[in-house]
Design a protein around this nucleic acid. Structure first.
Length: 469
RNA sequence: GACCCUGUCGUCUAGUCAGGCCUAGGACUCCGGGUUUUCAUCCCGGCAACACGGGUUCGAAUCCCGUCGGGGUCGCCA
């Protein structure tokens, strides 16, 4: 098999086919953070494994021991778990094909290198210039064709610099085997059937194929997925904003939204659907619909998708996540649980990102809030009589029997009518006076939650607080 | 420099492999209108693309060639 085609297949063929022998892997290097592109590669591997009923292996590529930090591994595991991508074999899970850290597989690599040397496919080489002895692999001079499930048959001849010296190093001067070797060896040992990885590896794949041949091992199927670019089309490197998954974790994104957004970068479920649960994505996912060209990261669309998930989020989960974010800001320290919960109930439909929470809720927890000059001018600038109305409203509210939103509503409207103004002429000044904001939750619900003491107090001090000078 | 991948609205994409069903569909953004006591949401409407140039064909976004653009690889990094 060489190329999969997606259109025109019989309908029955579109149903998920169980291929329990499928084994895919995500093999990140512990660099201290999880790149968003890496996360997407992991996602595609995961989706393919779940779609086919196969196995998803996680392997840590820490050949360069100086870089192997326990903490750096944890970042990867946390990121994958956050996205909901649980692996079947790997760190903290074990499995029949371990160990899953390359730093613990040195004997295996040594054996394979020995085999290559004995068969004449590799040889020791003394580098006179750099000094030391390395092991080099005798690379084929002929062009090699990569059968790729996404790109088709890609034939790559050696380029000019490779032509000058086709053989490449597989064991460094310090005795540590390089990526190309360990990657292939591990995929053979772990019985990987499908190598799904970033397109940046496509040009190196002929080297890997040559290694498989020299080792007499069966080649896996390759699927090189397009890369994720910055929104301006430039390459997304580690230092770019939004390149690391933890930025989204910290910024208050819902994991499902990020996962959903990522799945649509370079893959399409067809049929004009965009909001898909993990289960729906698993059911529809296939390599045949993966795009061939790179995709730009569109922050606006992610933000929109985040809003969609936020809106649908169950209140309990929203409250739990919101409280943990709020706790970090110290805003809710010492506040009664019950009050915090009522505030959250009020702003749930407004908040799109958890990091926006302080903006929406600060005035519920602190009395020293201010208002933008622009808001004050717009509300009171052309209507100085609002101050007197607010005074009157305060005395009505002071005498209010029960402090409920219908009662607050009725009292305000009655006053407006008696004063010959529209309700809105009272509602807006009141909102600004008690919250300092031009927008927010329904005013009467807001007043109800704020409570009589706070409202009366703020109404009394509004003129002083919102003074323009 | 060489080699490889790639090119549909500003962005993500459907349509391309089996040429006509495409006066090119959806979504995000933006603009206009409506709902809402405000803001956000939501609803309705609108702007906007087949990179360019040749061919093949009755007919091309779809097939072929070239050009240009974008990305990748060529490490004793992974």
């Amino acid at each position: 098999m060489v190329i999969l085609s997606c259109a025109g297949r019989p309908a029955a063929d579109r149903l998920p086919r169980l291929m329990p022998d499928v084994r895919v892997r995500f093999a990140p290097s512990p660099t201290g953070f999880l790149h968003i592109g890496g996360a997407r590669t992991a996602l595609f591997n995961f989706l393919y494994a779940r779609h086919t009923g196969g196995t998803f292996v996680l392997r840590i590529e820490d050949t360069d021991e100086t870089r192997h930090v326990e903490e750096a591994v944890q970042v990867i595991l946390d990121g994958l778990r956050w996205l909901g991508l649980d692996w079947d074999e790997g760190p903290e899970k074990g499995g029949a094909h371990g160990p899953y850290f390359q730093s613990q597989r040195k004997d295996i690599y040594r054996r394979y290198v020995q085999r290559l040397i004995e068969s004449g496919a590799a040889y020791e080489f003394e580098d006179k210039e750099k000094g030391g002895t390395v092991v080099k692999f005798r690379m084929t001079r002929e062009p090699i064709t990569v059968p790729d499930l996404i790109c088709g048959n890609v034939t790559r001849p050696l380029n000019d610099t490779e032509m000058a010296d086709p053989d490449f190093v597989i064991v460094r001067r310090d005795g540590v085997p390089v990526f190309h070797l360990v990657n292939v060896v591990d995929d053979i040992e772990m019985k990987i059937t499908h190598v799904i990885r970033g397109e940046d590896h496509l040009s190196n794949t002929p080297k890997h194929i040559a290694l498989y041949r020299a080792l007499g091992a069966e080649m896996p199927k390759f699927a090189h997925i397009p890369l994720i670019l910055n929104s301006d089309g430039s390459k997304m490197s580690k230092s770019d904003k939004g390149a690391a998954l933890h930025e989204y974790m910290n910024a208050g994104y819902v994991p499902e939204a990020v996962r959903n957004f990522l799945s649509l970068l370079g893959w399409s479920p067809k049929g004009d659907v965009e909001i898909l649960s993990l289960a729906e994505t698993v059911e529809r996912f296939d390599l045949a619909q993966v795009q061939r060209h790179n995709a730009r990261f569109d922050h606006d669309k992610l933000h929109w998708m985040q809003g969609q998930y936020m809106l649908k989020m169950a209140p309990d989960r929203f409250n739990a996540m919101a409280r943990s974010f709020l706790a970090k800001t110290g805003l809710t320290a010492g506040q009664p649980d019950d009050y915090v919960l009522r505030v959250l109930g009020l702003v749930k439909e407004k908040v799109k990102l958890f990091t926006e929470l302080p903006e929406w809720t600060t005035y519920f927890f602190r009395d020293d809030f201010t208002a933008d000059r622009e808001v004050i001018v717009k509300t009171f600038g052309s209507a100085p009589q609002s101050w007197e109305l607010l005074e009157k409203l305060r005395s009505r509210y002071a005498d209010l029997g029960e402090w409920t939103h219908p009662a607050l509503d009725a009292a305000l409207r009655a006053l407006a009518q008696e004063s010959g103004v529209k309700a809105a002429a009272l509602i807006h000044p009141c909102r600004v006076a008690v919250s300092g904001k031009a927008g927010g939750p329904s005013l009467f619900h807001l007043l109800e939650v704020l409570g009589r003491d706070r409202v009366l107090n703020r109404l009394a001090t509004a003129r002083e607080r919102l003074k323009l000078d």
